[in-house]
Structures are given as C-alpha cells and as structure tokens.
Design a binder for these strands. Structure first.
Lengths: 214, 214
DNA sequence: ACGAAAGTGGAGGGAACCTCTCCGTATTTA
DNA sequence: TAAATACGGAGAGGTTCCCTCCACTTTCGT
C-alpha cells in the first residue's frame, strides 16, 4: 500500500529518529497536549523539520505509539490465554496500568477520541476481557456482579491516581490498584448498586474525558 | 472587617443574584474552566455587568462556593462524630463523592491550587479522617494498612469515574465506589504495596492535577 | 417628575497559545 | 560542483480568554 519512496537523505533520517525519540519522551512526560514546538525544541531541530517529516501532530503521535499499541494488543491476547483467569485478569489490568502510569501520552491516546486509535485496542480488549471475566467468575475468583466493561473505569481510576501522585512516588498507584483488586475479588460483602454497564456504553463514554460541550 | 457599603440598587442586586445562580449551574455542569462570558450569557447579562460585581473570576467562584464549602466542613465534623466509625467513614466518603459527582466545579475547586480554597477543607478533613480511620481500625471494620491520607486518592478515583460516566448514568460512580469500599474493608487478602503516604504529601500532590510543567 | 448617581451591554484591546507555512540558507550526494 | 534535498525559525492566521471602556439606560431621593 504505502509504496516506500526513495530513502531519506542521511541527515534527514537522523533527524527523523531524533524527533520520534524526543516526542516519545515529551509525550510520556506531559501528555499529548504538548506543542510540536516543544517536541522540536526537545529534539534539537526546528519546527519546520518536524512538519516536513510528519504532516501534522496526529501523524507524529501515531508514529510514536504505533509500536506501543501493537505491544498492548499482543499483551491483551497473551494474558487472555492464561489458564488461571484471575492471574490473567489482574495481570492484564496491572500491565496496562503500568504502561499508562509510565506514559501520560498513552493514557491520553486511550481516552481521547481525537486520535482514533482507541478502536484498535478495543478490538483486542473486549474479547480478552470477556473471556477472562467469565472464566474468573467460573473459577470462583471474581465477584459475580463484576462485568467486563467495568475494567475500563477501573483503569481510569488507577490512571487518575497515577497522574496525581506521579511526582510524589511514581509507584504509588499500585497501592490503589491493590485496593481495587481486593474490591473485585469473590466474596464481596456489598452487592454493586445500579445497572451493569455494557462495552458499547463504556466505549462511547471513555472518549470524552476532556471534551467541551456547546 | 469588610464594611458593608451602601446596599445595591434594586436592579443591580437582582442581576447579582442571577449571575451567582447562573454561575452555580454553569460551574456545576462544565467545571471552573468556563469563561465568564459563558456565565454572563447564561445569566442573561453582559460581561461588563459580571465584572462590575465581581472583580475577577476567582471572586465569583468564591461567592458561588462559599456556602458549599461551609456545608462540607460541617459535614466533615458531623460524620467524624459518628460512633460507628465505619459508617461515619463511608458516609463521609459517599457524601463528598456525591457532591463532586453532581458538581464538576466543586471537584475543580478541591484539586486546583489556583483558587486557594483547598486548605479550608483540609483543616476539617484531616482531623475527621484521622479520627474515623483510627477508630474504624480499632473497631475491626477497616483494613490495618489503610491510612487516612488514602482517602484523597480514593475520592479522586471516584470523581474520575463520575466525570467519565456522567452522561451515561449520573449514578454509575456508586458502582465503583462500592468496589473501593469493599477493597478497604478489614479482612483484605493482599497487603498494600509501597510506603504509606502522609497528609502533607497528599496535599501538595492534590493541587496540580491539570498543571503544566516548564 | 426630574436629575444625579448607579448600573448596563457588548465590542474590542491585549495577551497568550497553537498549528502550520514559507523561503533564504545550508548540507548531502552523485 | 551542481542539483537535489533538507534545515531553521520567524511569522501568518486562527483561537481563546480576561478584562476595560463608554455611550446609553434605569433607579431613586427629593
């Protein structure tokens, strides 16, 4: 499809790499809202150079996260195959939380419709979540009123604490994840209130964390 | 201290009230980031009128939330006095979560250093939290490795889900609060990882959710 | 009922920020 | 060494927001 054009000139290729590396760091530290000027400065090149290589910000974001997203989808498939479903489920949640805690940009990508990469994850996430949740319940490890679409909000909660406490202790989010995991274990004392959400509902709702209303 | 000047003219007072009422609604629906132009439009007055009555946005915010903050501090004192400490603790958390879920502006106010009202809450929150946590542990209802400063992040997590799922179901946050409360109950299966945070640490860290770094 | 005092609306000044383009200059490559 | 390619960064053009200014309107005491 994308016919590979002639290779870049040596200095151009060098700069392209510097831009992607710098973008990865800046996005991780400050989220996707940073300016391409910031990225350029951090990479030690001019903005013009960034825009020649990447037609717009979105293209750069995708270039930076394409690999990470692949990593996550394979991770989803892999943890879903764990025969100990509880271990698989907690492993899945922990692994995603770990990546989001270490990379603000990844969190933005997962919760921002603007970059349209969320579906790519959902495609692997939904089957994995469904399978793990069903099997973990069957194995008696997961409370019965928990549903697969609850995983999204769970991750959102952990990401919120990670974001908040990052400067204090970059691992403090694990404390609150542990609380949540104890909360979803089988043998719950309080039945969950309200209706059980669906995947579709959660998907629509996840993509407007920081949107505006008219 | 603030010598009450001569009373406002009738129409001026009428408009002042309309502004505060409109601001309350707009802040609740969209958070403190709305423009004073938005408030003015919603109140049916010109921006100039808003600025004559309130020297700047912060003054309006304080006028709107002064009463709510008082309400919360008395609520803190009251729940802290409950002899059933678990009931007091969950009541406190639920009550604050309820208010934050219903009012985006209140959440912003609690987590945004810019408006300098957070200390006013902390003054009542810290003693209440300390007392309830200590007593709930003594009564065997609360897990031993939970600490009073953990309540902040807990509320932050619930607020994050409330914000996210508001359009889907304005009460869905209760589901995730229930999970968390089950997670902090005595009889936990996994000990919490990492060091226990302090009030001071949490305070510094709560006030920079949406800040920028240089 | 009239005039001074108080209040009003909303255009727009000024500042900050962002994305992206343009073009004179510099580097690479054949 | 010349043609092709790439570079930097000023700045165009757009948006957003806070707040001011002032010609016009309303209130209220006398």
């Amino acid at each position: 499809m994308t016919s590979d054009t002639r290779p870049l000139r040596a200095d151009a290729e060098r700069n392209r790499v510097r831009i992607v590396v710098a973008a990865r760091e800046v996005f991780a530290a400050h989220g996707l809202s940073v300016t391409l000027d910031d990225v350029a400065r951090s990479a030690g090149v001019g903005v013009g150079t960034v825009y020649r290589r990447f037609p717009n910000k979105e293209a750069l974001v995708i270039a930076v996260f394409d690999h990470v997203l692949d990593e996550i989808t394979t991770l989803l498939d892999k943890t879903a195959a764990d025969e100990d479903a509880w271990r698989g489920l907690t492993g899945l949640i922990t692994a995603i939380a770990e990546r989001q805690a270490a990379d603000r940009g990844l969190f933005d990508l997962c919760t921002n419709a603007d970059f349209g990469q969320a579906d790519r994850i959902a495609e692997h996430f939904i089957p994995a979540a469904d399978s793990l949740v069903a099997r973990a319940k069957a194995q008696g490890a997961l409370r019965d009123d928990f549903a697969a679409p609850d995983i999204g909000p769970l991750l959102m909660m952990v990401a919120a604490t990670a974001e908040m406490t990052r400067t204090l202790d970059p691992d403090l989010w694990r404390r609150y994840l542990a609380l949540l995991l104890d909360g979803i274990r089988a043998g719950a004392t309080t039945p969950l209130p309200g209706p059980t959400p669906t995947h579709a509902e959660m998907q629509t709702v996840m993509h407007c964390s920081s949107s505006r209303q008219p």
